[in-house]
Amino acid sequence: MKKDYTFAVARIRGREMSLLSNAAMEQLLASKSYDEALHFLADKGWGRSDERLTADNLLQAETEKTWETIGEMVDDMSVFDVYRLSDDYHNLKAAIKLCYTGANMDPERLFVAGGTVEPERIYKAIREKDYSLLPEGMSAYAAEAYDTLLHTGDGQLCDVILDRGALEATYAAGKKADNEVLRLYATLTVVAANIKIAVRCGQTGKSLEFIRRALADCQELNTEALALAALGGMESVVEYLAGTDYADAAEALKESPAAFERWCDNLIIRHMKPQKTNPFTIGPLAAYILARQNEIKCVRMVLSAKLNGLPDDMIRERLREMYV
């Protein structure tokens, strides 16, 4: 039977009222100092009253609150795997680096909340090299990445393997999703990441083999052609993209890397907006999570810019369109 999300969507409608609008973001941007920005957010209900007012606490609390809210409304959280898998791979990366370096630090500090697997389980799997504790798919990447790191000591290669794992897992989860927003999110995440990888590899003069290893398989882009284009640098990547469905991305890419990242996020946000009028499907919930992630990302940028005294224009170039 098709799941009914009428109750959850009505609740989400109420929650959407407390999302930061473009105007609120401008107000935040106009804060004279880092502290003033933090207090502005606290006044908007951000963070938890029993925690110290810091950017890390504030943003972590908001991420947790988002998943708590969704968890109250949805029985089966696996429908949101497209959003959560990257956190699993982040935690996996942290666990591998921690075990490899043997650093004496609290693993909790490195892990992020919101993944599909408990961070402790990931840590235990890596520490004991018992990859069967990890979900199918993740275990192979974990084994490959850890073995590569142990044998070569190349942290970047380890990251490349895990990043590709995260992208391919997200893409696969997107293909399985029965909602357009989730599918689109997964596809665009992988496409955008592949383009970014190609550009960066081209700029840093990586080998074709490395680029092939880094690019995640997806139907929307011909990864082989993209890898070859990457060898020719930014110009040839832009040329390649001009002949694909992502010709607009090429324009943004020519402008600046930040403009390209903003283009990716804005494209998703624009596709999400019609979900505002669809009260019976999981779409508005998916859109809300994405809107929250987008909001948290923007706030993180503003706070970090305020802390480092960067000019407002520099932040504005990176700010995304808000959902409300």
Binding site: T6, F7, V9, A10, R11, I12, R13, G14
Partner: peptide, 14 residues
């Protein structure tokens, strides 16, 4: 029933 579920969601928040 349909409207009731939405109404309950609305009242849960406000």
């Amino acid at each position: 029933g349909l409207a009731g579920r939405a109404a309950a969601g609305a009242v849960a928040e406000n």
